[in-house]
Design a protein around this nucleic acid. Structure first.
Ligand SMILES: [Mn+2]
Ligand SMILES: [Mn+2]
Length: 311
DNA sequence: GAAACCC
DNA sequence: GGGTTTCAACGCGGG
DNA sequence: CCCGCG
């Protein structure tokens, strides 16, 4: 047998392409196979890679599909291709980790082969790892609060931050929550971002009494929307824009224009529908880079401003 | 999914 | 050779 | 101090 052609990069091979990663689920899109995942990643690559490139990456992998065993992966696994970039992190007093960094379509193909389903990039770049260039505001509704409540809190956050002249971008988490992105000048350490997002959460709780909580303990959240400000700590992450989720129906964390947030349930955005939407309407976060590099301190100003009428 | 580990 | 294990883990809020 | 949490 002749050896594989070196022009067909061995790393692009996809084994078990028909393996169902998302089994059929009643009333939802799918089933979706490993090949579906690879195809999806190939199509959304130009937009997804914008948020992976240069950032340490944490993966969640499901080699036998979302109903099978799973694991997080921080380190570049042994046997990974030599061209894969990485970020060696040796935090003082912590265990050393060598995070993968995916920056091109060939990296995405490798992720599909690895059955890596969820992509969790750092909010800081590897070249400036101590200073995040975005604050992520993770809104987790605690039942009976749901997606609509998270959207309402998201819009309130947008209005509040506008008092400081700040622009905010939104996406579905893919589950029932919402993720907000505040691009900032990378000038403050992670702990400052935590403190500022906490202050924002406290102000939201003031503005929307009984609808917002900062309580860590689930039992004490009592049907409110949890502002998970601690997700901004060093090494903590939320899933990337356009990352698939390991949930029935293969939902995707979907960036949306503010006018569209809440117009559809989160499962509306999945492995098949997102590429079509991107082709027709483009990327709702296309202007994030140009609106970026905002001043984190303006959040404090916004929170000190008089509260508008309750939205 | 793939390697390291163990008998 | 083949079955099994590993693949993150800590800082912190709050009682 | 211990537990829960992500
Ligand atoms: Mn969330
Ligand atoms: Mn969360």
């Amino acid at each position: 047998m002749t050896p594989a052609s070196p022009t067909l990069s061995a790393t692009a091979r996809l084994t078990h392409p028909e393996r169902p990663l998302w089994p059929a689920a009643a009333g939802l899109a799918g089933p979706f196979t490993k090949r579906d995942l690879a195809n999806y990643l190939e199509v959304v690559a130009p937009w997804l890679l914008l948020h992976l490139r240069g950032r340490p990456l944490v993966l969640t992998r499901y080699p036998r599909g979302i109903t099978g065993p799973s694991f997080y992966q921080k380190n570049v696994p042994p046997g990974a291709p030599g061209w894969l970039a990485s970020f060696p992190d040796r935090p003082v007093g912590g265990r050393a980790v060598d995070y993968p960094i995916v920056g091109d379509a060939r990296g995405l193909a490798w992720l599909a082969q690895q059955a890596a389903i969820e992509f969790h990039p750092w909010s800081a770049r590897a070249l400036d790892p101590e200073r995040p260039d975005r604050a992520m505001i993770d809104l987790d509704p605690e039942p009976p609060a749901g997606f609509a409540d998270a959207c309402a809190v998201a819009r309130a956050a947008r209005q509040l931050l506008s008092l400081g002249g700040l622009r905010l971008w939104c996406k579905t988490s893919g589950a029932t929550g919402v993720h907000l992105c505040l691009p900032i000048r990378p000038a403050w350490p992670h702990r400052d971002v935590v403190a500022v997002v906490r202050a924002l959460g406290l102000r939201l709780a003031e503005w929307l009494p009984g609808r917002v909580t900062l309580e860590r303990a689930v039992a004490r959240r009592s049907g409110r929307v949890y502002v998970d400000y601690l997700q901004n700590r060093r090494g903590q992450t939320v899933c990337a824009p356009y990352s698939p989720r390991a949930l029935p129906g293969a939902p995707v964390s979907m960036p949306l224009a503010w006018e569209d947030l809440g117009g559809d349930p989160p499962v509306r955005w999945h492995l098949l529908s997102v590429p079509e939407r991107l082709r027709r309407r483009g990327d709702a976060w296309a202007d994030l880079a140009e609106g970026g590099r905002q001043d984190l301190r303006q959040v404090i100003r916004a929170c000190a401003a008089p509260l508008p009428d309750t939205p």
